[in-house]
Amino acid sequence: MDFQRLTDKLFLQSTVSMLSKLRCVTFDVTGTLIAYKGELGDYYCMAAKSVGLPCPDYKRVHEGFKLAYADMAKKYPCFGYAAKMPNIVWWKTCVSDSFIRAGYDYDEETFEKVFRRIYSTFGSSAPYTIFPDSQEFLRWLRKQGVTVGLVSNAEYRYQDVILPALGLNQDSEWDFGVFSGLEGVEKPDPRIYEIALERAGNLHPEEVLHIGDSMRKDYMPAKSVGMHALLLDRFKTPDAVNWKKSGAPVLPDLLTAQEWVTSVQLNC
């Protein structure tokens, strides 16, 4: 056997596919498995019109919400987990502040009706859509004997209501979830990934792959605890150029992710 053939043989013997080494794959949820449908203003408009009010200005409401959400997330992170704030109170404060910042100061009775409509809408599947490759890929992984976990900066309604309504059910598409509103820790804190490793059965990080859509919240913290990671660029974000330059694997969808996990070779 010539030297090149021997070298090639030794190389093949010393590498295996990533899929054969994986025991768990964890996923970000929004932007990775599901997406928002329409604009925030659409739902605030519908809520206002349901009580006979005119539509709030879309741009002002959007900007008001961004500021209000950032303020609430800073004061009461993880949807008020540490403060033991009820989920509905956290959102009521946030939505009220969103309207006020946008220039709409409704009386208490009117706001209560508007808020109830918004809260119930965002606690349903109505504002979301599932990517067509999500369910198939999750089921495929589980058929390979791979545990599937979700790691999301979301509150309990994602787990209990929204994901099942979209066809992403525990025990058929995923095995466990780590949601910031239920855990009191959120991405990009690496601890949320350590919780995921524990939930998966105290796995070694190198046995787990995380798939998400954020370099800061998904890729970097997952890699920091020793997990494999890849990024999805479903919306052709300009940031993806820099992600690739940094050496991160960046793929357009879960169909190519399936090809990736079966073709990438790891050292034994």
Rank of each mutant, 00 (worst) to 15 (best):
D2W: 03
L12C: 06
S17R: 13
L19D: 02
S20M: 05
R23P: 01
C24D: 05
F27K: 03
V29Q: 11
V29W: 06
T30G: 04
G31V: 06
T32W: 12
T32I: 08
A35E: 14
G41A: 15
D42Q: 08
C45F: 02
A48N: 05
K49S: 11
S50P: 04
C55S: 14
H62Y: 09
F65K: 01
K66T: 03
A73N: 12
K74E: 12
G80P: 06
A83E: 15
K84W: 01
M85P: 02
P86R: 11
P86N: 12
K92V: 01
F99E: 02
R101Y: 03
Y106W: 14
Y106F: 15
E108V: 02
T110W: 07
S120L: 09
G123T: 03
E136Y: 13
L138S: 07
R142G: 08
T147Y: 06
L150E: 09
V151Y: 11
A154Q: 15
E155F: 08
Y158V: 01
Q159L: 06
D160R: 06
A165H: 10
A165V: 00
G177H: 05
F179Y: 13
F179M: 12
E183Q: 15
G184C: 03
V185Q: 10
R191S: 03
I192C: 09
E194G: 07
I195E: 11
L203Y: 12
P205H: 10
E206P: 00
H210D: 11
G212E: 12
P221L: 05
A222P: 08
S224V: 02
M227D: 08
A229N: 10
L232F: 12
K236A: 14
P238S: 07
A248N: 04
V250L: 10
V250F: 14
L251T: 08
P252C: 08
P252L: 14
D253Q: 10
V264W: 13
Q265G: 09
